[in-house]
Design a protein around this nucleic acid. Structure first.
Lengths: 202, 202, 202, 202
DNA sequence: TATGAATGAGGGTTCATTCAT
DNA sequence: GATGAATGAACCCTCATTCAT
């Protein structure tokens, strides 16, 4: 019985590994060549599994695409959170600004990542992940930020909505600024953006 | 000489017609089936021209896709401008709010259009260059709005940038609200958004 | 273990069969219609495999074209060798003359083959490398003839080169003679050619 | 009447010019990209004429291909002849060797030309040109060489044939030697080749 | 004669998906 | 579960040729 259990867990582990290989293989190809020009063939070859194996873990390319987006956006927020915690920043307004700043700096360092996540860096996608029977470890960050916001500004009626606006405003406007210096360079733009964000969360 | 000219203009007219047929055929298919699932075959068949003719006017599917996006989002701004002019709205703040409102209402009526234009609404007034190769009748909406903005708030340093922010904030946030009622319904969201816009343009 | 091996070999056999089907299908079409006017569509249909299967075995039409040329010209030398061996011809000079004669007669009987192989006859024994990736049963005809040549004329410095000249002279000159009787009929030309060959190998 | 004549001759000149433009445009493209990958579109564009104009002067691509081959081979022989005449070489054997040498050196300097003319550098093609109602200025060289040969070796029965062999042997064997140093370098090969040629013409 | 816009058959190639092993 | 050979529909695109001007 015991050996059976350990066998089972070993198999489960192995499956998880295959899935993760596929996800990271897909991620690497997506940011290098774009989703459009990445084939499932390449994803499986890069992951070291057979072509047919892909279909044991994902529906099709758009399925894995969505999962990769969620995984990578989550990772970014997680890193940003660790960063502000390590810097021991307490004030919510400062925390938000620093989280955004961390994310912007990540994109500046990795422009391919920005191109890939593009205008999909949104808390909205977490919601979708939550609604699906998806790994619910992804909802923690969003709820944590909402709770912090509520404590910071107790009269604020539109906590969810304003947080959403902050993220959307950031991701949609930095896109052109970082990639094309348009309408102004990202460093100049930061000043305007951070002012707006403070104004939104009051 | 005269006959030559009229011959040439007749040919040029015919070419313009073919190009417009292709653009509107592509538009109809794109919003009905999505770009991904629209083939050039279908675009040409729908436009009533031969397959090869497509390549006389466009590089490939992504070329016409870009042109259609720009054309349609520009059209939206043009309609919105006519709307506020007809309503005889003079105050710049009110003009902007009403332009945005007109656009949002258009998207509510035509959700496929929103899905298609997506978060690229800004292309409509920021990429005029790409279109006027073949149609220089385009009024420069962007410059007109900037001028109005400057007159409205003479101390504003960041005219261009703030206008850009308004448009990006709008297109990125209404997307989820209109299509998924997330984070709140579009009607509730309008109140928040319009407040933000007023705050941005002061 | 055994069943696994037999499975594998069965699959390998099947693959080899598919490849051979494609090669012989291509050969038949090439000599009937010319390379230019043979489509991959036809090759696969004729071979009884799906269109996509072609690309599992060959790069493109020029890849299979090369392989077919080499295969067929090699085959010709192989047959010629069997012929002179069966006739029990020992003298090297006579062996060469008879090999060439056998090949010329084959071309007279099958002019389409001559048109196809054209002036590339030497590929049959000079490009073995390209073929034996997948079929190492090929005897090295070239080395065998060189050895015979060396024994026949021990003082000869240019064994390789003269053999090459014999083959090239043959294939380049008989082409017009067989197909167009130019500059004279092939039967008359043989006399001159064989004299030259004897003179070359001394 | 006069003005009509001069008009006519001007038109005829113009036509000849167009034809020559097309021929040289085709030549340049053929040696740069290969016949296979040169389109009539490119030929006409390069020649500065309209697409349809091509069909006023040539049947199709293979027609112009043949004409270009003939033109360029002829040019090569012509240059070689001028070269031996300038060097005032009288002995036929030396003249032939020097003609061949000149041609080989031309190919070494312009390997693209060798690839293009390939194994088609033949007097045989002149014959075809002669048989067609083609410009008969192309037959002079061949007949001149035959006459010289006859005078040099009055007993020779196979004048035409041996001249043919010399050209064919040369063009087929230098091809690999110049382009691939195979089976030996062209400089080493020259020695063997020239010996063979002397032996052929006695 | 000369043009070049228009054609559309047909080419090569890709690739998601299946299924026997 | 895992494989990867095989499939074949569907794709984009080229290009020789035509013909109204």
């Amino acid at each position: 019985m015991n050996s059976l259990n350990s066998d089972n867990s070993k198999i489960a582990e192995n499956k998880q590994l295959k899935k993760e290989n596929l996800l990271s293989s897909a991620y690497n190809l997506f940011i290098r060549k774009g989703v459009q020009f990445t084939s499932i063939d390449e994803i499986t070859e890069n992951a070291g599994v057979a072509k047919g194996t892909f279909y044991l873990y994902f529906e099709d390319k758009w399925d894995i695409y969505e999962k990769v987006i969620i995984e990578r956006s989550h990772l970014l927020f997680e890193e940003a959170l660790i960063y502000v915690n390590n810097k021991n920043i307490k004030d919510f307004k400062d925390r938000i600004i620093n989280i955004i700043d961390y994310i912007i700096e990540s994109f500046i360092k990795n422009k391919e990542l920005l191109k890939f996540i593009g205008k999909n860096l949104s808390l909205g996608i977490y919601n979708k992940a939550l609604l699906d029977e998806y790994d619910n470890s992804y909802t923690d960050i969003k709820e944590m930020l909402e709770t912090e916001f509520k404590e910071y500004n107790k009269k604020e009626k539109y906590v969810k909505e304003k947080l959403f606006m902050v993220i959307e405003l950031t991701s949609s406007t930095i896109y052109d600024s970082v990639l094309n210096d348009y309408p102004i360079s990202i460093n100049d733009y930061k000043e305007i953006l951070f002012n707006e964000i403070q104004s939104i969360i009051k």
